[in-house]
Design a protein around this nucleic acid. Structure first.
Lengths: 192, 192
DNA sequence: ATCTACCTTCCTAACGGTCGTTAGGAAATA
DNA sequence: TATTTCCTAACGACCGTTAGGAAGGTAGAT
């Protein structure tokens, strides 16, 4: 399917160059078609961008869900910490993540609203599931210090984003340094 | 000084539109001059971008230093926590911070090297001063759990960035929610 | 089985527009 | 007089987009 190839190439270009910096000519060139042929599959640059974001978020969501499912029988600490390591492995040479971060933090102004409409449910969904996970686990493991599971989930997400930005910006070595600096402190603060 | 007015306008435009999205015509228009007049002050778009970044980092550095100096007689906890609140107040309608973040995470590819040369000393400097601060304070207050001050400083910076990105992206309300979710946990993990 | 109509996909050519940049000169400042 | 600052005019390059048509496949009717 050419449409999908265009989409994936677009993700890579938008990740590296941003919305304004990416060029349809170059995307088409990498796909192996001419620029106007893109219009057989997408209405225009905006449509391509939104489609790429939609696709990226769906894929990301599925991957995260599959990680948490695969770890569902592990204790809480390796489950939460392992997510960081899994994430680093998944995200290497993975431009989808970079695209997602870039679109989240610095969306093209004219698409701000539509981008927000895609992101807000995504984050709310993550927060909700994480809150539920913590509540569920606490019932059996009873290791958590507080019982405000929503706040703990939000704190966890904050740490993931603080390290993720480092991963995207400077690479995996400094990401790991940060991770091993912050995790023992955070986990100590989280548990009894 | 017209050069400085151009610089500040450029910061605002680069923050909102990014390097590729910002246009010299629009910057000139907002300043009240014509586009080619910019070339009387800067060699071109690249020079303007780098100058704007240099200026932004210098200003930011001075402001941060002045906060920590003004709080030098406070205990460690209000000093570290207050930085978040001070930061939110400073950063409202402050496009400098947005520009700095954007330039740090998603620099224009062709200026990646020069941008890195400006950022790396900035972050290293922050990390160094924070490490020293923690070591110094621990000698008198003895509240810290660990004695790896470098790792604690890095962890603190990670939390600041995790919340800062939220501040830039969604605004001050959700920033405060995150802050009040993560800080008690983090501080508990940091201290005896 | 063949013809017809239609739709998808891709092309070349070209559109109007904006981009960053330069040339060259006028006005102001020192 | 020399230099800085600003202007108008224009450059070539690239942008996203559209027009119009060729090639190919598909579906239904004859």
């Amino acid at each position: 399917m050419k449409a999908n190839l265009i989409l994936q190439t677009a993700v890579s270009h938008f990740a590296k160059e941003g919305y304004a910096g990416a060029s349809l000519s170059k995307i088409a060139e990498e796909v192996g078609i001419k620029k106007p042929s893109i219009y057989a599959h997408y209405k225009g640059k905006d449509d391509l961008f939104i489609s790429a974001l939609h696709y990226s978020l769906d894929t990301q969501k599925a991957q995260i869900a599959s990680y948490f499912y695969s770890m569902k029988n592990e204790p809480l600490e390796p489950l939460l910490f392992g997510y960081f390591e899994w994430f680093a492995k998944e995200s290497q040479d993975n431009e989808r993540m970079k695209f997602i971060l870039r679109a989240a933090y610095f969306p093209p102004l004219k698409l701000e609203k539509e981008v927000g409409n895609l992101f807000n449910p995504f984050f709310d969904n993550m927060h909700l599931h994480l809150t539920r996970l913590l509540r569920e686990r606490h019932r059996h493991e009873k290791v958590l210090y507080s019982d405000d599971f929503s706040d703990m989930a939000l704190a966890y997400l904050t740490v993931t984003e603080g390290t993720m930005t480092e991963l995207v910006y400077t690479g995996v070595e400094r990401y790991n340094k940060r991770l091993h600096a912050v995790w023992p402190i955070f986990w100590r603060g989280l548990t009894k």
